[in-house]
Lab assay of single mutants.
Amino acid sequence: MSIQHFRVALIPFFAAFCLPVFAHPETLVKVKDAEDQLGARVGYIELDLNSGKILESFRPEERFPMMSTFKVLLCGAVLSRVDAGQEQLGRRIHYSQNDLVEYSPVTEKHLTDGMTVRELCSAAITMSDNTAANLLLTTIGGPKELTAFLHNMGDHVTRLDRWEPELNEAIPNDERDTTMPAAMATTLRKLLTGELLTLASRQQLIDWMEADKVAGPLLRSALPAGWFIADKSGAGERGSRGIIAALGPDGKPSRIVVIYTTGSQATMDERNRQIAEIGASLIKHW
Score class of each variant (00 low, 15 high):
Met127Thr: 03
Lys213Thr: 04
Gly90Ser: 07
Glu270Pro: 09
Leu89Val: 03
Leu73Gln: 14
Asp212Pro: 13
Ala40Ser: 02
Leu192Thr: 06
Glu210Trp: 12
Pro249Arg: 08
Pro224Cys: 09
Gly234Met: 11
Arg162Gly: 12
Asp36His: 11
Ala276Lys: 13
Gly248Ile: 14
Ala235Phe: 11
Ala245Gly: 09
Met184Ser: 05
Ala148Val: 13
Thr186Ala: 06
Leu100Ala: 14
Glu26Met: 10
Ala84Lys: 13
Glu108Met: 15
Phe64Ile: 13
Trp163Asn: 03
Val101Tyr: 03
Leu146Met: 00
Lys71Ala: 03
Ala222Glu: 15
Leu219Glu: 14
Asn134Cys: 04
Cys121Arg: 09
Leu79Gly: 07
Pro249Cys: 06
Ser128Glu: 01
Ala132Ile: 05
Glu61Val: 10
Leu28Ser: 05
Asn98Arg: 07
Ile244Trp: 11
Leu120Trp: 03
Glu270His: 15
Pro181Lys: 12
Ile283Asp: 15
Asp99Glu: 13
Ala276Gln: 15
Leu197Arg: 08
Leu120Asn: 01
Arg92Leu: 09
Val82Leu: 06
Asp174His: 07
Leu192Ser: 06
Phe58Cys: 15
Glu270Asn: 07
Ala132Val: 11
Glu56Met: 01
Leu219Ala: 11
Asn134Lys: 07
Glu87Gln: 15
Gly194Leu: 10
Leu223Ala: 03
Ser264Gln: 06
Ile229Gln: 04
Gln203Trp: 10
Ser201Met: 13
Arg81Tyr: 03
Lys71Arg: 01
Asp155Ser: 13
Val157Asn: 08
Leu196Trp: 08
Pro25Ala: 01
Pro105His: 07
Val78Thr: 06
Glu164Asn: 15
Ser221His: 01
Arg63Leu: 09
Gly236Ile: 14
Ser68Arg: 08
Ile229Met: 08
Ala235Thr: 08
His156Arg: 05
Glu119Met: 11
Asp48Asn: 07
Asp231Arg: 06
Leu219Gly: 09
Met115Lys: 01
Ile244Thr: 12
Asp36Trp: 13
Asp33Met: 08
Ala182Val: 09
His285Ile: 07
Ile93Pro: 15
Thr69Leu: 04
Ala40Gly: 05
Leu282Ala: 07
Leu47Arg: 02
Leu73Thr: 07
Gly234Leu: 08
Asn272Cys: 11
Thr126His: 02
Arg271Asn: 01
Lys190Ser: 13
Gly242Gln: 06
Glu195Arg: 09
Arg271Gln: 02
Arg176Cys: 14
Leu150Glu: 01
Trp286Lys: 12
Val117Arg: 03
Asp174Leu: 05
Asn152Trp: 12
Gly43Val: 03
Ser281Phe: 13
Gly141Arg: 07
Ile283Gln: 12
Asp33Pro: 06
Phe58Lys: 15
Glu277His: 14
Ile243Glu: 06
Thr27Ile: 09
Leu55His: 14
Ser233Glu: 13
Trp227Val: 00
Arg241Phe: 07
Thr131His: 14
Ala40Met: 07
Phe70Thr: 05
Lys144Arg: 04
Ser233Phe: 00
Asp155Tyr: 14
Thr186Tyr: 03
Ser264Val: 03
Ala200Thr: 08
Val29Asn: 06
Pro249Leu: 10
Ala215Tyr: 13
Tyr44Leu: 11
His110Leu: 14
Arg118Tyr: 15
Thr138Glu: 11
Thr116Ser: 10
Ile140Glu: 15
Leu120Lys: 04
Ile125Gln: 10
Ser80Ile: 13
Gly39Ser: 13
Asp113His: 10
Ser221Gly: 08
Ala225Met: 00
Arg238Ser: 05
Trp208Pro: 04
Val117Ile: 02
Pro217Met: 00
Leu47Asp: 02
Asp250Val: 07
Lys30Arg: 13
Asp207Pro: 03
Lys109Thr: 15
Leu47Trp: 06
Thr178Ala: 05
Asn168Tyr: 08
Ile171Ser: 06
Asp155Leu: 09
Leu49Phe: 15
Cys75Met: 04
Ala34Thr: 05
Arg202Val: 14
Thr187Leu: 03
Ala222Asp: 15
Gly216Ala: 04
Met115Asn: 02
Val258Leu: 08
Phe70Arg: 04
Ser57Tyr: 07
Glu102Ser: 12
Ile140Arg: 13
Ser57Gln: 13
Ala124His: 07
Glu277Ala: 14
Thr116Tyr: 05
Asn134Phe: 12
Glu87Tyr: 06
His110Gln: 13
Ile256Thr: 14
Ser281His: 15
Thr131Ile: 13
Ala230Pro: 07
Val42Glu: 00
Thr138Gly: 06
